[in-house]
């Protein structure tokens, strides 16, 4: 299990740590910076984390996934700091004997991360910036 907050998420590192002789499939989700949001052009994102708690919450989600699916290897990497359009910000990876579990667990991990892990992103546009989800 590889769970980290990093300045640069590394797809190669994620892939290497997911390799397992018992795995018949590896699923990797990569979240990237999109160039638009709410009809506006996005120039960059800045991520901030409450690191000790974020890691704890990521570990809880990983354990919950391990209890539900037969997972050989699992990776959760999230970037902090400034990220430009196109750059990867989060990598979720699951290796499992069969692809169904890998796909389902991968989706569970990213969906839960978005709900509970104390990481915040500020979206920058040409003329202003906002903390995503902060206001109704």
């Amino acid at each position: 299990m590889l769970i980290k907050l990093v300045e640069e998420v590394d797809v190669t590192e994620a892939y290497h740590s997911l390799q397992s002789p018992g795995a018949g499939g590896i699923d990797i989700f990569i979240g990237t910076v999109r160039n638009h949001a709410q009809g506006k052009e996005v120039t960059k994102l800045v991520f901030e984390a409450y690191a000790p708690m974020a890691l704890k919450e990521m570990q809880k989600i990983a354990r919950a996934a391990q209890q539900q699916w037969p997972i050989e290897k699992l990776v959760m990497l999230h970037a902090v700091g400034e990220k430009l359009v196109g750059e990867p910000v989060v990598i979720i990876g699951v290796a499992s004997a069969h692809r169904d579990a890998a796909f389902t667990a991968c989706r569970f991990l990213i969906d839960e991360l978005k709900k509970t892990v104390p990481i915040w992103k500020k979206e920058y546009y040409q003329d202003n910036s906002v903390w995503v989800n902060a206001h109704p």
Binding site: P52, M53, K56, W131, V132, A134
Partner: peptide
């Protein structure tokens, strides 16, 4: 102490207390 807390949880000195606005990771 880096766990989500309910409103009725007592606060004591020595604890690490943090505000968690709506999260937006991923």
């Amino acid at each position: 102490d880096s766990e989500y807390a309910d409103d009725d949880q007592p606060l004591q000195s020595g604890q690490e207390v943090a505000l968690i606005p709506p999260v937006s990771g991923g």
